[in-house]
């Protein structure tokens, strides 16, 4: 398949992620959108790695996966913590801090 398909797919994933982060109010969904964005980047890395025949991109993906996992750990922990205090993870309801 031509390079363009992968790039387009990655771009679409990334944009969906952005929209998800900006539009959805449930922190968990926002979180999943973030993961989608990470994976969009991963796809890009792998695509280019295959295209250029270099291994750099694939190694990068490994790192990204690790980081994403660490983020998941931290993010889930935060969400659990806030849910236990507040019984909601709606981002819009987090208005104790007003600006």
């Amino acid at each position: 398949m031509p390079l363009g398909y992968y790039l387009a797919l990655s771009a679409v994933m990334f944009v969906i992620g952005i929209v998800g982060v900006l539009v959805r109010r449930n922190a968990l969904i926002v979180f999943m959108s973030l993961e989608l964005m990470f994976n969009a980047a991963n796809l890009l890395f792998v695509t280019f790695a295959a295209y250029y025949g270099t291994i750099i991109g694939q190694i990068s993906v490994f790192f990204v996966m690790t980081v994403a996992a660490a983020e998941v750990a931290v993010g889930l922990a935060l969400m659990v913590a806030i849910f236990r205090t507040k019984h909601s993870i709606d981002v819009d309801q987090m208005s104790s801090l007003k600006g």
Binding site: F14, G17, V21, A27, V30, F31, L34, M37, F38, A40, A41, L44, V64, V67, E71, V74, G75, L78, M79, A81, I82, T85, K86, I89, V91, M94, S96, L97
Partner: peptide
């Protein structure tokens, strides 16, 4: 906790931009 979650969501959001 809210601060942390907001920081986390926005921070991760920005990280994805860096990564992309």
């Amino acid at each position: 906790e809210e601060a942390a979650l907001k920081y986390f969501l926005m921070g991760a959001f920005s990280s994805t931009f860096v990564l992309y």
